[in-house]
């Protein structure tokens, strides 16, 4: 069973084709990183998976079920942070995690236990009773991670999860991702931190101009250089498309 499959996804905003036939999969137990420049289509692809944006063409399947018709049992296996982490500013850290876990299908007792466990795991103890509005950006990001991971999802989708984290937070996040994959969950993660991605990903896909333009081998040196080479080569081969794309973005 494939945890996530995006097939031939197309999404256009006026002249801009944010997704232009993008296809990728995430297998159970796999950490699949997608990297790309701003506007490459990474976030749009993730938003399409959870229904935040509708595809003009193509299909998303969650655990071999079309996402559009996925029921509660399938959706309870999903957790994601896209754009803005979960967190109501007027609720405390603990309350936010409990409500998030319940929304993801856990009963009350299990949600409360999961909240305590994740507060400890992500070192949010000093802020557990504090309202989310008083948290630093990094701690809000930790809270958001706890909110989508507390129900132990089988598919975790994380869009730029490290962008506000301090080094300690990045290490905690890495542990969470690796542990999730270790218990069999598929993880789709986008990041600009290529070194971090290279360290933990099983597969690295380069997304550019709304489509997959290649893959990079994890664990190799000089990932940035090889990434830019790949993007530049694609632009050279598709010069007209690249020009029209820059025009649409401008």
């Amino acid at each position: 069973m494939t945890a996530l499959e995006i097939r031939d996804a197309v999404r256009a905003y006026g002249d801009l084709r944010a997704l232009d036939g993008l296809t990728l999969t995430v297998e159970p137990g796999e950490i699949h990183a997608i990297i790309g420049l701003n506007g490459a289509g990474k976030t749009t692809a993730m938003k399409a998976v959870v229904g935040q944006t509708r595809l003009d063409a193509g299909e998303v399947r969650l655990f071999d079920t079309p996402a559009a018709s996925a029921g509660p049992a399938t959706l309870a296996r999903l957790g994601f942070v896209i754009d803005q982490p979960f967190g109501y500013p007027e609720l405390s850290v603990r309350e936010n995690i409990v409500h998030a876990a319940r929304l993801h299908g856990l009963p009350m007792n299990a949600a409360a236990a999961a909240a305590s466990s994740w507060i400890a795991r992500l070192e949010l103890g000093p802020w557990a009773a504090r309202r989310a509005r008083g948290l630093s950006l990094g701690n809000r990001q930790r809270l958001g991670l706890a909110c989508v991971a507390a129900h132990a999802p089988d598919l975790l989708i994380l869009d730029e999860p490290t962008n506000a984290l301090d080094p300690a937070g990045v290490l905690l996040l890495r542990d969470v991702i690796v542990a999730a994959a270790g218990r069999g969950a598929g993880v789709l993660v986008s990041s600009h931190h290529l070194d971090e991605v290279s360290r933990i990903a099983h597969r690295i896909t380069v997304v550019h101009a709304g489509r997959v333009v290649g893959t990079l081998e994890p664990g190799q040196a000089d990932l940035e250089h090889r990434f830019f080479e790949m993007v530049r080569a694609w632009d050279e081969d598709h010069r007209e498309d690249a020009h029209s794309r820059q025009g649409a973005l401008a």
């Binding site: 998976v49 309870a76 754009d83 803005q84 982490p85 993801h104």
Partner: peptide, 10 residues
């Protein structure tokens, strides 16, 4: 900006 977290839930 809390609406995004309400998508794809059980």
């Amino acid at each position: 900006r809390t609406v995004g977290s309400l998508f794809a839930l059980p």
